[in-house]
Design a protein around this nucleic acid. Structure first.
Lengths: 136, 136
DNA sequence: AGCTCGAGTTAGCCAATGCTAACTTTTTCG
DNA sequence: CGAAAAAGTTAGCATTGGCTAACTCGAGCT
């Protein structure tokens, strides 16, 4: 069974960047009204050239729209993905906090983990947040 | 705080493949005595060319040794990394099982998650496995 | 108005990871 | 033994996701 597992992980990988970006873009818009490339430069600690590159791919894939020198906007699909990612992120982070992990670690680890959590695992985590720990 | 987080995730990424490979190589050696490239082809569902490529990088990085048409061997460093990855993997997988996730999902998700779990989170998971769930 | 400076863009480079196709070596079996 | 199959290698290519360097645009200040 491992082969299919790794195929899935490779596919997940491709969407990780997209999810992280739309989430960050949605955050920037929520906090500052608009999202400029510089917001993403700071957020991800990469150069503008890299941000530009990535935004180009996201636009190609129908998640964002931009015109030169204009702020970055999310398409409907982009907004949908952002909302969904955010929810997943919050569940994972909340779960780690409940597990007793420090806020800083929960924030960091949830960024990496959220992309690899299946629906089933996510539901199990959600259950803990609403109903408490499973019985032994 | 996000910038450093993403820098770390990018660095983690680089070692993911190495960890997965040495783990798979150690498994193959444990199960069949030697590890051939074909074992990895099946395990990761990639072509031999890709395996060859990757093995070349691992050799460059001092984790494995091979000679043409010979089985793949782990160096001391490779064995160390394999053992460490395996332990981490087992904790994550065991924890997911304890959470109530099915065996199949736990196996799949732990593959993706293990690379993004900090020491602190890993310890929290280990604690659950030995001492049960934290008090509310 | 003009100039500067920050932000954005473009071009060109690199490494990792994947692929296919063509070739060589090894193994296996009739 | 010898030929076919399996395994391994090599070459060439694409994409992602980074980078630097050089250029352009636009905003704000004097």
């Amino acid at each position: 069974m491992p082969s299919k597992t790794y195929q899935r992980i490779r596919l997940d990988h491709a969407s990780e960047v997209a999810e992280d970006y739309v989430e960050a873009i949605a955050d920037a818009i929520a906090e500052r009204g608009v999202c400029r490339a510089m917001d993403l430069v700071k957020h991800f600690a990469v150069t503008h050239a890299t941000v530009n590159n990535t935004i180009g791919r996201l636009q190609r894939d129908g998640l964002v729209v931009t015109e030169p020198y204009q702020p970055i906007e999310l398409t409907a699909a982009g907004k949908r993905l952002a909302t969904q990612s955010r929810k997943r992120h919050e569940i994972v982070e909340g779960f780690l906090r409940r597990l007793g992990v420090s806020a800083a670690t929960a924030a960091t680890d949830s960024e990496g983990i959220e992309h690899h959590v299946s629906k089933e695992t996510l539901n199990a985590m959600k259950r803990v947040l609403t109903d408490g720990w499973p019985s032994e």
